[in-house]
Design a protein around this nucleic acid. Structure first.
Lengths: 333, 333
DNA sequence: CTGAAAGCGCTTACAG
DNA sequence: CTGAAAGCGCTTACAG
């Protein structure tokens, strides 16, 4: 691959000049600019991004580090698509670190990404006081959080109104006549878990329904524990007639359990889940779900990050997106 | 972040010496080595990968470019996980380019990744004679293909025995008494489409069943066209009693159509799909499917790539993995 | 308006 | 066994 030097030689100018036209420094005389452009074209030259990155931070070919808790979760896939979409349109590129909820892996990725000189990070912190992320922020790295914020630290954040989303879902269930509504929550220490819980309680209270701790069970936010906790709920002496599941993995697990037991949805048990999936209509019956705009979350977070990189001292922003209740057939009609 | 120079100063040696202990060049005297190590530890030093990459190709912190046709396809998500898993364990990192079957985007990603000096590429070529990939191979870049090979070029490849996989699935259907078996194929120009077709034909012929072109329809390999083509099949005057769908997106689309029409699976229509998903048991009924070991495909491809990077002239390898028919409930019993 | 030169953080012949 | 120096491909003050 050809270098600046090659272009300079061919155009009969210095590398400095070539660099200037590349970075559209408009001091360059039109005439020489054309010569350089011609040489670039002829040599099919593209700047070496590694050298650019080593030299300076003021490029617009950014490299973005993405720390994702679980790439198998379709919600994060949507987020990734959104980030990638925005990054791509802005001449940037993303390195993915999928840390599988493993703090050690998270730490190592942070180190690697730092030494790759990423221009900034987009992360879903593994918990509210994630020390590694906190350190990153305090070190002044450009960061935006998605899905979950941080405690005691100001940081850009893009997420969804969880409480409102769950409120709508539970209200929907209540409107359909359910009064005993189970809740399989996510991991106890996640902010989203609390917010979703709050939405559940808000709805139950508003309609004067009993909040029975027996039918509120916390899961590990994954498929297996979703299946297991649902089984638990179903085996209760006085089981719920409807279940709210706090994320898509839990929902899928719950469906597994319900199918395995030959229960009919919604006749025997109704279900609404947090997180929609693009194949919700492929389920039988089609799943009613709280849709998070994952793609949009991704795009916005990437936009915020690039802003932050360009202007490190702009004030911290929180973007709260709305959810949408996708009413299909899993709750009755 | 501290640099080689800082370490050298603190240890009272030259940067060359520090570099040597970093790259475990064993000429360094044990004594000075210890001093350097101590300084490294004290300063919490990690080498700057960007500088390393600019300087030399003989590092073992690789950066791998991944060109993926569609990150929303769960099969590729598994592949990505496998790649990431192997890369992570080998001090390497992956940059994802999700080109969404768009050749222009594919081309641009290739250029970007080249100028990021990636050490090699893992790609699922958009077709057998993908010119950009071909050019890359001819330029001598380390490359391994996944899922689909290339025509007229020797290249490392890891994929699955598609024909055998489909043969098993169709044979299963036949064993259950089906004789009129529809087939929604993938995109016409993909190698996998042909191989899967061959498996279908092989099975039909072996059992002396009619291969009726009317019930073999080609789709665009995605959800929507899977839904649409299945509708077409179902509306035929003499519709099939069972359908084989050639990938997971098509399968999901087919399920959507079947549900929408209120048809029962497998009583009204049986279905087997290529590609398994981890939530197959969440479907109602649980889906019978041909499982590709996506994670394994990812791991092996990354292993192959790193081998190739280290030894550019080792002979070309093809790894063909086995599929597994996951018999659940969507075909009858 | 343009060039010569320093430097980003490394690695690696070349001397000694 | 160790250091001084060149160089990877760029950008950017500093002169002119």
């Amino acid at each position: 691959m050809s270098s600046l030097k090659n272009v300079a030689d061919m155009a009969g100018v210095s590398v400095a000049t070539v660099s200037r036209v590349l970075n559209s420094d408009d001091v360059v005389k039109e005439d020489t600019k054309q010569k350089v452009l011609a040489a670039i074209k002829k040599l099919n030259y593209t700047p070496n991004r590694v050298a650019q990155r080593l030299r300076s931070t003021k490029t617009n070919s950014r490299i973005i580090g993405l720390l994702i808790p679980d790439i198998q979760n379709p919600f994060y896939v949507d987020v990734i698509r959104g980030i990638e979409d925005y990054a791509y349109a802005h001449n940037s590129v993303v390195i993915i670190g999928n840390f599988s909820q493993d703090e050690k892996k998270e730490k190592l990725y942070i180190d690697i990404l730092k030494s790759e000189s990423v221009d900034g990070f987009i992360v879903a912190p593994s918990n509210e006081k994630d020390v590694y992320i906190k350190a990153l922020i305090e070190d002044g790295f450009p960061i935006v959080c998605i899905d979950r914020g941080m405690k005691d630290v100001d940081v850009d954040l893009v997420k969804v109104d969880n409480q409102q989303g769950v409120f709508n879902a539970v209200q929907h269930l209540i409107g359909l006549g359910h009064t005993r509504i189970g809740h399989v929550t996510g991991k106890p220490f996640l902010p989203t878990t609390h917010e979703r819980m709050a939405g559940y309680e808000e709805a139950m209270k508003m309609y004067d329904l009993e909040i029975d701790p027996e039918i509120i069970v916390s899961s590990n936010s994954d498929y297996d524990s979703g299946a297991e906790k649902t089984a638990h709920l179903l085996e209760l002496e006085n089981p719920p007639t409807a279940i709210f599941t706090a994320n898509n993995l839990i929902t899928l697990g719950a469906l597994d359990t319900i199918n395995r037991r030959g229960l009919r949805i919604p006749e025997d048990i109704a279900i609404v889940g947090f997180d929609d999936v693009y194949w919700a209509n492929s389920l039988n019956p089609p799943l009613t779900a709280v849709r998070q705009p994952g793609f949009e979350i991704g795009r916005r977070s990437c936009e915020l990050l690039i802003q932050r990189i360009n202007k490190p001292d702009r004030s911290v922003a929180s973007i709260i997106l709305k959810t949408e209740l996708m009413i299909r057939k899993s709750c009755g009609s």
